[in-house]
């Protein structure tokens, strides 16, 4: 990248006009400096302002959430209106079941699609799939929920954990596919060739050498995707639906933390409001634990062979 510089004019004796110009230049330079300083201050202000909401949200979550947390929260079932106490044991278990279901759907498809994208780098179909998976990634989660309802709830006639898990899993596919593609892409070609030269078939090379080498990065990407869907509410409204009772059946409606936080938050009862805060705190904590594990997995990423 070269920048065009104005051609240098030959040195001349300064004329009157030029002298006046240079005085004006000094004056405007001062002004320009002040403007610059002001704008830089504005940028700093923007940075502070951008971080503030996060601090507020976390502050409230901690103060209001921790005070409502108790052992009962993790072990007890929700109490009916009017009775105090109770917990969200079923919602916590429900969220974990939904995460498991979503992973069972989203991980294989996502990793497979990612392998395809990495191995067919320039192909037309690969470019199309890559573009569409980015588009799918931006699809509103409520639309995914409605699709899952139409597809899995309406024909059966009742809400189910399975439908919720499928909706969440479908949301994971594009995220997992893109990280898999990226991680497989950074495995050196020389490793693939070394395996082929040993008489490995293509599928064996891909699975037992390339994918294995990229696995740490893919695990990280999968965990990030799980962290993102763990807090989703909208896709569950008409699929998993929520359940006041203990249920681990995949065919029955199931409770989930985000759903409980939602219904408690819009309820008129103070006791439920504090449960909502506690639920939100636990949900955030869950997401953070998953993200932290993901960071840890990244750190253990393989060192490439060949020693660059």
């Amino acid at each position: 990248m070269t920048t065009a510089t104005p051609p240098m004019s030959p040195p001349l004796r300064p004329t009157l006009r030029q002298r006046a110009f240079s005085e004006r230049t000094v004056r405007t330079l001062k002004r320009r400096r002040i403007v610059s300083g002001l704008m830089l201050a504005v940028l700093i202000g923007a940075a502070v302002l951008a971080v503030l909401p996060l601090i507020f949200i976390f502050g409230h979550l901690l103060t209001l959430g921790v005070s409502s947390l108790s052992w009962d929260f993790f072990t007890k079932m929700p109490k009916p209106v009017g009775e105090t106490g109770g917990g969200l044991a079923n919602a916590i278990v429900g969220t974990l079941i939904l995460i498991g279901l979503a992973s069972a759907v989203g991980l294989p498809v996502g990793v497979g699609a990612g392998l395809y994208l990495a191995e067919r780098k320039g192909a037309k179909l690969a470019n199309g799939v890559r573009f569409l998976s980015d588009v799918l990634n931006g699809l509103p989660s409520i639309v995914m929920g409605i699709f899952a309802w139409q597809f899995l709830v309406r024909p059966v006639g009742h809400f189910s954990a399975l439908a919720g898990g499928v909706a969440l899993g479908a949301m994971m596919i594009p995220m997992v596919a893109r990280t898999t593609e990226e991680m497989v892409g950074i495995v050196p070609v020389s490793l693939r060739e070394a395996a082929l030269a040993l008489g490995y078939s293509r599928w064996r090379t891909s699975l037992s050498v390339v994918l294995r080498t990229a696995s740490a990065g893919i695990v990280t990407g999968a965990l990030v995707a799980i962290a993102r869907i763990a807090g989703e509410t909208a896709p569950l409204l008409f699929t998993a639906f929520g359940n006041q009772f203990w249920s681990t059946s995949l065919k029955q409606p199931i409770s989930a933390l985000p759903l409980q936080v939602f219904s408690y938050a819009i309820s008129p009862y103070d006791a439920w409001h504090s449960l909502a805060w506690a639920g939100a705190l636990v949900l955030i904590a869950l997401i953070f634990i998953i993200s932290l594990v993901a960071r840890f997995a990244t750190r253990a990423r393989f060192a490439t062979g060949g020693g660059d």
Partner: peptide, 9 residues
Amino acid sequence: FQRPTPFPT
């Protein structure tokens, strides 16, 4: 090959 290619995993 030119560069050593041990399987890192």
